[in-house]
Design a protein around this nucleic acid. Sequence first.
DNA 1: AAGACGGGGTA
DNA 2: TACCCAGTCTT
Length: 350
Amino acid sequence: MPEYAERFRAERFRECLLAWYDANRRDLPWRESSDFYRVWISEVMLQQTRVEAAIPHYLRFLERFPAVGVLAAASESDVLAAWSGLGYYSRARNLHRAARIVAASGTPDSFDAMRALPGAGPYTAAAVASIALGLPCAAVDGNVVRVASRLSNDASPSESPAVRRRFAELAERLLDRSRPGDFNQAMMELGATVCLPAGPRCAACPVEAFCAARAAGTQETLPARKPRAEVRQVALNLLLRVRIAPGGSREVFLVRRGGGESRLAGFWEPPSVEIPPDGARRIGVFKHQIVNDRFQVAVWLHPDPLVEPLPDGRWFAAPELSAVPLGGIARKAVASLEKAGDTPLFDIGQ
DNA sequence: AAGACGGGGTA
DNA sequence: TACCCAGTCTT
């Protein structure tokens, strides 16, 4: 009877979590009521913003715009001014647009209606729907992803949409349908204060007994992320042939690994160069790296032409260079070369 | 799928 | 000083 056992476990989980929440819940300004407008404003403010940072702005904002009608009637610049210091100003612009929609057509009464408002994604729609409307929607923010990954001891990369869906389904299964708003806030508060990214305080955790990661001792390693793009530390040289003048194409140089431990470590840079006599004028600065077995090339236009033979004169074949995925910078550089009448040809030296 | 968005907090 | 944080929207 695995289903029955599962249901029983989920029920116990809810009891433990909510008992902990009831005993430890913080008094926050937006918890004084479950008023839709106040909950909504707080959830938008709390996107990418810490509770402590949001509180003073929240209080000021509500004083300035005490009800949705006031917000809807305000000018955008007034709203932006009240938002100043919070960052991500598109949140304020979306909120303002959404306020006009709510003022005109009424408070949303479902997850879908909430989700349709500008600035309300899956998280915000679920949070407001559960806290203000009492609807059984699981709100999955970064905290909940961390808690869910540890409860299930699931080391799949947490930024993949499919994996996030799995964690959301777990949260949905655990959700207390009679107190969805409290349950969601309890999960998030657990993640923020106990189930910490580093150094989780398992001894203080109300649901330790339900945690598969804790049982396996893997809690510190979760949630897992996509494997870091791997830069192969191999002396690969890339030959680019660039058509420079009406005369034809010219082979140009290449690149060596950039040094240092900085952001550019692992990229490849051209050696210092001299200007060739034939007036080759516009050669890019090239950086490339092997990322997950794919060649990536970035090309910067450089005011000074550069050409230099490789010191050792050796070339290595780069696989499928003509199919190299160019990043945004490289595409811009190539487009710029083409606009200037120079057709870049990519070729493989050997 | 990947990057922009903006502050503040932290190594 | 530079990196990190993590929802939503855009491309």
